[in-house]
Amino acid sequence: MLTFTLRRLLLAVPTLLVISLVIFLVVDLAPGSPMSEIPLTIPPEVRRKMIAALGADQPVFVRYLLWLRQFFWVEPASLFDGWFGTALADGEQRILSWQSRSPVFSIIGQRLPQTLTVIGTAYIVGILIALPIGIYSAYRQYSWFDQAGTLFAMIGFSVPTFFSGTLFILLFAVWLGWFPTKYDTQLEVRDWASFWQQARQMAMPVMTLGLANAAAISRYMRSSMLENMGMDYVRTARAKGMSERTVVLKHVLRNSLIPVVTVIALGIPSIFGGAIVTENLFGVNGIGAALIGAIQANDIPMVQTLAFIFAVLIVLFNLIADILYGLLDPRIRYE
């Protein structure tokens, strides 16, 4: 397992380098200019100077190499400095967002907490809803519960989050007045009152995303359960005279969870990626909102860095999913 992991990690290095180059070229070649959002009242020569000040007029390969250096040397070094008070990255240019002139990594650092709390909670809530639905739907296939579960999944799949989110806002915020429509990122949970406030402001985005997540995962769970339900070893377990509870929870569920756990692990990078639509809708302003804002503003350093971090996370969680599979399924061994 260790050699397998090491080999995969080594293999990931050239893969990621190629990915970074491809992302850079794609982002760079995409039409648009970092100045496209500023008012027309700013004359062309001022624009040109602003672009030069951003360094955006340099040739693409120069900017790429600079970015590589910044990403792999300057940023880790300045992180190290921050921890140990050293001065490795002194005088070095960190990756700066063109839009805000702030270091990209401090922006990510500011935004990650709310993305992880909101999107992460939504993911966990989604899983917690999905697993029982999937398990019971499969166990009672074609029952009214299964039909209702199917309907739920269909709704979760087909209703886009901008629609369900807006619906929730109208229902729970405008009519009932239960929840705020704008997420307060500055809220600190210090006591029960602020915890309650945090729970209230998380309610709608978590519901919106949780519904969508639960839909997909409940279907995976159901089909995996159904597949295992028909297996001979389940019949064996019944023939052994095991109770129905043992048969379903010990034999069927444990084996059915293997692929579901993998799917869940593979979905984790998307938590870091945030949810563009939902974040925007509720003003969560996490990573997803940062990415879409950066794309709209042609903030290439921001887009590039975020896209690359996603690529790293995806590669990493693919590896983790593989390792998990190996741990959960004794039939799989990596050498």
Binding site: A173, V174, T181, K182, N280, G283, A289
Partner: peptide, 19 residues
């Protein structure tokens, strides 16, 4: 507080009174 769109901003003032 920034973000969202014109509609959600308007709603937060005109309908929910949060802002």
């Amino acid at each position: 507080k920034g973000g969202g769109d014109a509609e959600s901003s308007a709603r937060a003032v005109m309908e929910t009174g949060e802002f």
